[in-house]
Design a protein around this nucleic acid. Sequence first.
DNA 1: GACCGATCGTTCATTGGTGAACTAACGCCT
DNA 2: AGGCGTTAGTTCACCAATGAACGATCGGTC
Lengths: 148, 148
Amino acid sequence: MHKRSRKPARRGATASGLVFSFLETAEAVEARLEAAVNPLGLSLAKLAVLHFLADAKEPLPLSALAERQHCVRSNITQLVDRLEKDGLVRRRADSNDRRSVRAALTAAGTRAHAEGMDALRQVQRAIMGPLNAGDAESLRAALKALGS
Amino acid sequence: MHKRSRKPARRGATASGLVFSFLETAEAVEARLEAAVNPLGLSLAKLAVLHFLADAKEPLPLSALAERQHCVRSNITQLVDRLEKDGLVRRRADSNDRRSVRAALTAAGTRAHAEGMDALRQVQRAIMGPLNAGDAESLRAALKALGS
DNA sequence: GACCGATCGTTCATTGGTGAACTAACGCCT
DNA sequence: AGGCGTTAGTTCACCAATGAACGATCGGTC
């Protein structure tokens, strides 16, 4: 037809693609992190559990892990199942509360955590490398605006 | 010990938290999109399949769907299983290639696609609302830098 | 001390994704 | 025509996450 009268109405056009670009980039970034820890026999989910355990410096109840991981309890049950099978974590009974089960790091778990965090730090730097200070700052601002 | 000699070495410090902020925000955004289409009996994965089918305007081989979805073929097999159970898609044999199976939109599928895309557009605008033009532009730039 | 509501971990079914192994069919190629 | 490498879809086992249902236990409160 003929040209648009009035405003270009690009309002929606800018936004639409951007959301999915955002998600695709996030997916790619996550894949890079995952790929960095996979060779160590770890996943991001497993490493996160090890990290909370190492951070607390004492065995934590599974519900505490669920809370920090922002996930449901049943997920932690299975994650700890696998970590236990890997020999990185051990379930210990809580003497004060017989409902509670605490996850404790094994020696292998402590080692795996150190290695995993190391690999993670490296790839994190690699990812953020191409961003100069200004880029980083405006990205931070955009994230804050999005996470309303 | 004593203060750092030389450079502040903030280089890593800025980057480290940022990667995970990025991923967390992405997760939150994705959850909002998911929540927008869930009430319609859809998921983002299902809607994407419907979208490719509607876009092509003809039944597509499952491998074509896998390619566009950037996922493995076995995933599409199961996704189409569920979509077929929902009555949104039908499997049709390909007369030219007997190995191939094409996914075809049903009438219900076409309807669901329209509704889903509608809901999606709305929530997309809501998400990008708090970003002014400058924010959007610098976000775009940052994404380009990250998606190396 | 007995009941009752909340909390803790587990189990199960479902969704979504991967990768390996397998069968059927296609296309060459000589 | 026969043989062989490739492609298409499925199946299976696994990882990660959700949500509902359930049994055990803990804390009041009555």
